[in-house]
Design a protein around this nucleic acid. Structure first.
Lengths: 210, 210
DNA sequence: GCATCCATGTAACCAGTTACATGATTTG
DNA sequence: CAAATCATGTAACTGGTTACATGGATGC
């Protein structure tokens, strides 16, 4: 049950990954980030909006006129677009979508940032699931790198466990502690097997389209 | 690969759980907490020592003369106990073990705190693995509660996923996103199966010793 | 017109990390 | 005696949360 137990710049990665597909406003972003993560507790606005502000400050995202991206931004309301958008713009000098929504789009710079985040192995433990979620934006070869380096990390965990097991095997440990370790071990193996399937699929695809 | 992705009072739980078995000093506690957690990054002293101070302030742990607990505290050095301990005490007014080590023991109050932490469902997501590691200190019936409530939580996750899957199935999603979801699903099922085995074992034990 | 959900933001707080400072003990 | 490791702590910073403040739009 790894999931992404968000910590540093994990939010940024999630935001950029989602914006890479389409323009979105903050509120919607929050919902999608929660969805990505299965059914866990949603991230808070108190971290989302500052993260967006940070990304905007570094030029990775920018506020856009509604609907410049590919897909239309999902509308909850009904008041038809142009008129409402005009009114909203009049009220607040900055480019916002209908009814005060501030719609963000990813910039070229942002795409590079996303690229770098995807590549950085130091965040794999926290954010690997997220990286898989967005790895479609990588070329096959870099995607393969991602999968393989994660596989190596997990294999390393297993190796670590084995040496630890050897050390503690004498003072044979508590029933529940052992159940826990065994289960962790199995889970890691399960993760590795999954990665192996992903890697194999990637290789097969590499062969058909060289 | 759940593990305990420590957040609130997770450190406290780990400390109390370890001290429940035997008296330990901070440095050793850190090592053991890291071991508990498999091979992940160790917690930092910057969070460990303040946590110990917090626990001491609330009377859950207290500094003890070396070796009042059950097992002896593992000694790294060789200078034999009494003489060194005497010197150390002379140097620093407070009760410390040999060579300036400050050895902590759990208090009766601390055992109650541990009990409460183990019982609190709100920390299950972050700390379930830790709770299993220390559930031997619970009576069978409360241990069963713990396992069953966790099982229910995971079953809830699965249910949530299913409804979400139904919603998103139309706009059939990206290959990798689907692989991710499938794998999460499998992992959760694996976790549930594991809990079922633990629960069954507990029930069997309940029957033999009623 | 009132409750509810959409939508954005800020401020106070909290628990963690890194980096720093310090010193004793062991081992080669 | 020098290097490595054991051992404890503090201070500055980081990145998150909760709670608060605000207001438009929708549904009944």
């Amino acid at each position: 049950m790894h999931r992404f137990d968000r910590l540093p710049d994990v939010i940024e990665l999630a935001i950029l990954g989602l914006l890479r597909e389409q323009d979105l406003h903050g509120y919607e972003l929050r919902k999608r980030i929660s969805e990505l993560d299965g059914t866990r507790t949603a991230i808070s606005f108190g971290s989302l909006y500052p993260a967006l502000a940070r990304l905007e400050a570094m030029g990775a995202v920018k506020a856009v006129e509604a609907n410049t991206g590919g897909k239309p931004i999902p509308m909850t309301g009904s008041l038809s677009g142009e008129a409402a958008a005009y009114l909203a713009r009049r009220r607040s000098g900055s480019p916002r979508g209908s009814r005060g929504k501030k719609v963000y789009g990813i910039t070229e710079r942002g795409e590079h940032v996303l690229d770098d985040l995807l590549d950085d192995p130091s965040t794999d433990d926290k954010a690997f699931a997220l990286k898989v979620a967005f790895c479609r934006y990588l070329p096959t070869e870099r995607r393969l790198d991602l999968f393989e380096r994660r596989r190596a990390q997990l294999a390393g965990h297993l190796a670590g466990e084995r040496t630890q097991r050897r050390r503690t095997t004498t003072e044979r440990l508590d029933l529940y502690l052992r159940a826990l370790r065994d289960h962790d071990h199995e889970t890691t193996q399960h993760d590795i097997a999954w990665l192996d399937r992903l890697i194999a699929a990637e290789r097969a695809q590499e062969d058909t389209t060289p």
